[in-house]
Write a protein that binds this DNA or RNA. Structure first.
Lengths: 216, 216
DNA sequence: TCAGTCGTTGACCTTTTGGTCAACAAAGTT
DNA sequence: AACTTTGTTGACCAAAAGGTCAACGACTGA
């Protein structure tokens, strides 16, 4: 029964090497896109022979899918942030705050994902249809119930969600443009606070709420 | 003096062929990215020998830059939409409406641009620094003056602009995701109205304005 | 200890890449 | 008509792409 407990030396190094490769691949795919990043570049970055990557992941496609799978798993962990039991203002504020933090903390993943979607999401269609869509549907229903109870203004729940996503992801995906315009080298902690506040203020007030004061 | 008036047969076909090539290149670069689209694919799509493209544009880089230049020129035409003389609500509403229309009418351009920025904007840095940044600065000053006059709420003007950009572009750049979630094949005219209304409602109310009734 | 499995890797393969070139066609100039 | 300039294009090239393979190394289990 406990077959997965004993980790051979082999299995340990296997896991380690795979993560090493995935890290390098994530970095390069995010920076250069699927076609822009070559197997030999990834091999060099991971300090591993190219043939070794092919041994683990079968093909470039396989590697790319593995990279995306890992991101999706990670992101799913934080997806259920929207909790129905609290007040709308608190729920939405926390969701926005978390999304901004996540975007800025993990821009590579956000950008890789964005690049995928930009090109028609060939590797993500299944995931979006089977995971994201039902999740969105549930949250849209929650928003609708808030509307029906008069807790928030009447807005299309889907577009409300898209508005939150677009504004929060923008700072990761279009980081280079934002920083160029703001004439900065990086986001400071103060920037992150300002971004969160701006977005939260506009969206919350925009649907008839006010930003919650600090009593979570 | 009037050397540019007489268009030789040569110059005419030159212009025509260049536009043909640029159209094909725009399409393919937008769909597949810089590295994903190859010269032979573009040549085939434009129904022109590959060597001919190289003759006109010198290199793949040259072609890419030409494609981007054309887009930038087109976009600049619509950039000065924000007009200081009218009421904030009307100005912003029209700007949002135009941006949504433009995004959905010209998704290829929006996505090509987005792909560029995503990868660090290597070909756009100069343009952003020299054109976009000053423009943004001016508009931010206008927003600030509205704030000082108490016409709109106090929000960071830059982030207000980023919010407008992100929400309006989202429907072009992430079209595949949006359509998958909404379970649609294309945006309908009604969708466009709903998108515009949602965004305008949230953002305008979010800064203390109300959506203008139909009297431009 | 000794098979047998799993992992490692340099050499090698085919295909495609961006790009060159030389020979030729077509227009403009005199 | 002769000459020059500009455009056209198939054949070609070196480099790099993704991927295969066979020989070898290292660990495990009996």
């Amino acid at each position: 029964m406990t077959t997965e407990i004993k980790l051979n030396k082999k299995e340990v190094t296997r896991e380690k090497n795979q993560q090493l490769i995935l890290n390098a691949a994530e970095q390069l795919f995010s920076q250069l896109g699927y076609d822009g990043a070559s197997m030999s570049m990834i091999a060099k970055a991971a300090q591993v022979p190219k043939a070794n990557i092919l041994y683990y992941f079968k093909s470039k496609d396989g590697l790319y899918e593995a990279v995306i799978d890992r991101i999706v798993v990670n992101w799913n962990l934080g997806l259920n942030d929207i909790n129905a039991t609290q007040e709308p203002a608190i729920v939405l504020y926390n969701y926005i705050k978390n999304k901004v933090s996540l975007s800025i903390a993990q821009p590579l993943q956000s950008r890789l994902f964005a690049g995928e979607v930009l090109r028609g999401a060939p590797y993500l269609q299944n995931y979006i249809s089977s995971s994201t869509r039902p999740w969105v549907k549930k949250k849209a229903a929650l928003f609708q119930s808030w509307i029906d109870q008069g807790k928030i203004d009447s807005v299309n729940p889907y577009h409300l969600l898209f508005t939150i996503w677009s504004t929060t992801q923008y700072y990761a995906d279009f980081q280079s443009e934002v920083l160029l315009i703001l004439d900065k080298k990086d986001y400071t902690p103060q920037d992150i606070t300002e971004i969160t506040d701006s977005i939260a203020q506009i969206i919350l007030k925009g649907i008839g709420l006010s930003v919650p004061t600090k009593n979570e």
